[in-house]
Write a protein that binds this DNA or RNA. Structure first.
Lengths: 81, 81
DNA sequence: TTCTTATGTAAAACATGTTTTACATTTGGG
DNA sequence: CCCAAATGTAAAACATGTTTTACATAAGAA
């Protein structure tokens, strides 16, 4: 998943710490999100979208990561519950 | 976070297992999401939205849960890193 | 150069999301 | 009633997201 958090933050001249405070998460979380180390939870994604007055889709874009199909080879034919 | 997954699934006459297969997650995950036991990851939310050809915002709605402010009393005034 | 702010990183602990296995309950059709 | 499919639930294990503490580095201002 790609995101435009850094771009949107810089447009507003906010530091990572500023943004973290507004979102009420740690600065490390903002840093990790900007650097693509992991994706935010859905609730945090909503907070981010609201803060920037954009839709989630305008900020986050599936990029061939987890939104793409998993590799399922060899995992079928035995799927009892 | 509220969601309309069950409604959208029933509109299409799919079982939870059908939907799980389409999303490539377990049936228990679909059940848990419908029953509001937890929110999906952002990537899974995207998969769900795409499957139903809707935006994430049309399916998921913050409902006063984690999207609302945390209780921050007494947590400020000492925020060194 | 020194001080300060901003940013990158790391490890541990903890919280949340997901799978697997397994079983119970409900529902509708025969 | 009986049977099958659908749904609800639970515990353990594992994966991912988040916080806390702590430190390193870069860059700019004084």
């Amino acid at each position: 998943m790609k995101n435009r958090i850094q771009e949107l933050r810089r447009d507003r001249d906010w530091s990572q710490a500023d943004l973290a405070a507004l979102l009420k998460v740690s600065r490390q979380t903002v840093n990790a999100l900007e650097r693509g180390r992991y994706d935010p939870s859905l609730p945090l994604a909503f907070s981010i979208a609201r803060l920037f007055s954009l839709s989630i889709e305008e900020i986050f874009q599936p990029d061939g990561g987890k939104t793409r199909d998993k590799d399922l080879r060899g995992q079928f034919g035995n799927c009892r519950d």
